[in-house]
Amino acid sequence: MPQEFTGLGQLLEQIEASCQHSERVSLLLVIEVIGLRSYAPFLLVVGLILFSPLSGVPGVSTAMAVLLLLVAIQLLLGRRHVWLPQWLLNRSISKKKLIGALHWLRRPAELADHWIQPRLDFLVRRSGTYAIATTCSLIALAMPLMELVPLSATTAGLALTIFGLALVAHDGLLALIAFTITALLSLLLAHTLL
């Protein structure tokens, strides 16, 4: 049964615990941990995957871009629950790769959990949420370009992780940081590709 997470570390622990009984871990299994009622954990998980070494696994960045776009559009449309197609839910990676990425993320998660707190909540409510969803849609659409620029997908993953944390913790300062990272990433992509 999905639950409310009190921190990023707890989310990582729950994902790791859920995948102990199979050799491959599907997106459906991860979603069963985070639940379908809230968009914030989806952004958080997509961001964590792109920020982690998993972004180097062929096909992962593309699958995450599709997931991100689907989630962001549904958030913009005001849907109460997340809908995802079965073919995307069936995508999987090896348990070994996932657990390695989760362990790699553990230290940054501990640092984040000590720092985040509710503040500037007008940036993560109503119009702020729409701005975040629009920005996430643009990141998803730019993901194919990021395949051409080293570390850009990782930087996008960092921004998405921070957006997810901002929504989970109602921390508008984190949203501002994520908007700034996205703007810098846009400048980097424009400078490199033009």
Rank of each mutant, 00 (worst) to 15 (best):
T129C: 08
F122R: 08
R106V: 04
C136I: 03
G128T: 05
Q117G: 08
W104A: 08
D113N: 05
A140Q: 00
H114L: 12
A140V: 05
T129H: 05
E110T: 11
T135N: 12
W115H: 10
P118Q: 01
R119G: 08
I132G: 01
A112M: 12
P108V: 04
R107L: 10
P118G: 05
D113G: 04
E110C: 03
S127D: 15
T134N: 07
A109D: 02
P108C: 07
T135E: 14
L120M: 13
L138A: 10
A131I: 05
L102N: 02
R126L: 08
T129P: 03
G128P: 09
L102E: 01
C136M: 14
T135V: 12
A140C: 10
V124E: 04
R119A: 15
G128S: 03
A131D: 06
E110A: 13
Q117T: 11
P108S: 00
L111C: 07
I132N: 06
A131G: 09
S137D: 03
Q117R: 12
T129G: 04
A112I: 11
R125D: 12
L102W: 00
L138S: 07
I116S: 09
R119I: 04
R125E: 14
L111Q: 11
R119S: 15
L141S: 09
Y130P: 00
A131Q: 10
L141W: 06
R106K: 12
R119M: 13
P118A: 06
L138D: 13
A140H: 01
L105Q: 00
I116A: 10
A133D: 01
G128N: 02
L111G: 03
Q117I: 06
Q117P: 04
